[in-house]
Amino acid sequence: MSSTSADRPVPLGGLLLRWSCLSYLGVVVLFPLTAVVIRALSAGPVRLWKEIVNPFAWHAIRLSLTTALVMVAISVVTGTATAWVLARYEFPGKGFVNALVDLPFAVPTIVTGLMLVALFGPSSTLGVVLSGFGLPVIYEQSGIVLALLFVCYPFVVRSVQPVLENLDPAEEEAAATMGAGRWLIFRKVTLPALVPSIVSGAGLSFSRALGEFGSVVIVAGNRPLSTKTAPLYVYGEVEGFNVDGAMAVSLVLLTCSLISLVAASKLAERQG
């Protein structure tokens, strides 16, 4: 919305800035990434395809996609609710909760795994209770979702919260004076305004979840065809000297998360 300066000729300093930034981006991100893609493609499409449809790889990819989707579905609801509560209500301990939302960013991911096992693992009270209900969490697929939920918790909250805080209350108030109920106001007035930020938060969570390694490796149990996700599979293939297999699956992961990021930003743009 603020591209008024676009038509003016860029001064020398601006050009210098642009080129130094672009070269920095090139050296740090684009250049190494291209090297990987070239390395991956050098194996040939047939080989890559075979590596992807190999039942172990395919199961891992599918597992990663489904667990990430389930996580996003839960995270969108809980994240929006958290953002809502933080933005709209006053309650004791609010500042504390607000600060702790960022905790998953601050905790190294292996630590996340250890923490979750300590709390939900088979030797913990909670774990015993849960498996008593026939719902063992750690070392099962639900454990993967749990780890992803923890790791991605801040994304939706932090993208919805500022929008909610900046939202003009006039429309909601107008709807209220017209006699609309709370739920109707939320559905018809508030929610549409939040959708772009929810979508972009969801896209980020999804792409982060697809690549998550450190915490999942500890809580998943890592069983092939059962709880081995795609990043764990990639790690295994790298260690097992099957670099082609690792590259093939990484390419799939990379494509999926790129699609989700781009789709989210497009969707958010269209809605916004």
Binding site: G121, S123, I138, Y139, V217, G221, N222, R223, E239
Partner: peptide, 20 residues
């Protein structure tokens, strides 16, 4: 009958120590 397959032998033993 396998419940956990950790990436390394040592981590596997650490898992066993955590009562799994």
């Amino acid at each position: 009958n396998v419940s956990v397959m950790d990436p390394s032998g040592r981590q596997s033993l650490a898992t066993f120590l955590r009562d799994s």
